[in-house]
């Protein structure tokens, strides 16, 4: 009882709630594809909106740490970060909330409830819509690379099936690198068989175009952004991740080419 009324402990508990809530917002931004400087900016805005005087942050690839100081009290908390993807609408919604919180007038409970609502209610395109869109994108990539019209159709189907299967596998918790290898094998095989059946003259290009859904464009750009913004550790981690994804994807294509007799194992 005595401990609960100790003003230092009470203030620590308040700071802890602010820190955890700010970290949760930061984690969502990070998982939605924001760069480190944006995450730090958003978390800082939220914490200062509750009267925190100093905010210190450290970002790793799989965790975020924050130290907040207010009224002579300081605490440090850490939070795990999940798989990094891209979700533009949720990212923008959390950034908007950070601006709102920075103006003051919201309680910690209200902000926590709002973050929960955003996570639950921010719309996502249905999986089949994403699959078709990615199929079209892969086929368009193919045209930019020089595949003929016969291969265009094959790449479209291969990209669509590949994206749908990738969604299902990731949804079931399969390791992201294994997914990259499997999907590269599946899409390249489908693209290769399809373009061969349609008498395409650009079978190898079609196989390559079919796996372009796996190329991590946003993480590779974020890697550079982070390094330029002064976070080389995180930038390097992202670059290594990009390289590993491409290694697994290339091995998948290698096996697909071997299966279709275009290359010996």
């Amino acid at each position: 009882m005595e401990q609960q009324q100790d003003p230092v402990i009470v203030r620590h508990r308040e700071l802890e709630r602010i820190a955890n809530m700010a970290l949760r917002a930061g984690r969502i931004m990070m998982e939605c594809g924001a760069s480190v400087s944006v995450v730090h900016g958003g978390v800082g805005m939220i914490a200062r909106g509750f009267g925190v005087e100093d905010v210190g942050m450290r970002s790793g690839y799989a965790s975020l740490e924050i130290t907040v100081h207010a009224g002579g009290n300081t605490i440090t908390r850490m939070m795990q970060v999940g798989r990094l993807g891209v979700n533009h609408r949720l990212d923008q919604a959390v950034r908007k909330l950070a601006v709102q919180v920075s103006h003051g007038g919201m309680s910690v409970d209200e902000v926590e409830a709002e973050i929960g609502r955003l996570v639950r209610e921010t719309p996502r395109h249905p999986a089949w819509v994403v699959a078709v869109a990615v199929g079209i994108a892969c086929a368009s990539f193919g045209r930019l690379l020089g595949v003929d019209w016969a291969a265009f159709a094959a790449v479209l189907v291969a990209g669509t099936v590949g994206q749908y299967m990738r969604h299902q596998l990731l949804h079931h918790g399969v390791n992201v690198f294994i997914v990259a290898g499997l999907i590269a094998f599946l899409s390249a095989t489908l693209g290769g068989i399809g373009s061969t059946l349609l008498n395409s003259d650009t079978v190898s290009l079609a196989m390559m175009a079919s796996i372009l859904l796996l190329v991590p464009g946003v993480p590779s750009t974020n890697a550079q952004t982070d390094i330029m913004d002064g976070y080389p550790t995180m930038g390097s981690a992202r670059a290594v991740w990009v390289l590993m994804i491409m290694v697994f994807a290339s091995v998948g294509v290698w096996f697909a080419e071997a299966l279709l007799g275009l290359r010996s194992l």
Partner: peptide, 24 residues
């Protein structure tokens, strides 16, 4: 025009993957 058209389609397709809204 060919390159611009397929550049537009590729960007929009990846926009859907990145969960951009229909207005964006």
């Amino acid at each position: 025009l060919h390159q611009a058209l397929f550049g537009a389609l590729a960007a929009a397709g990846f926009g859907v993957l990145f969960n951009f809204g229909f207005r964006a």
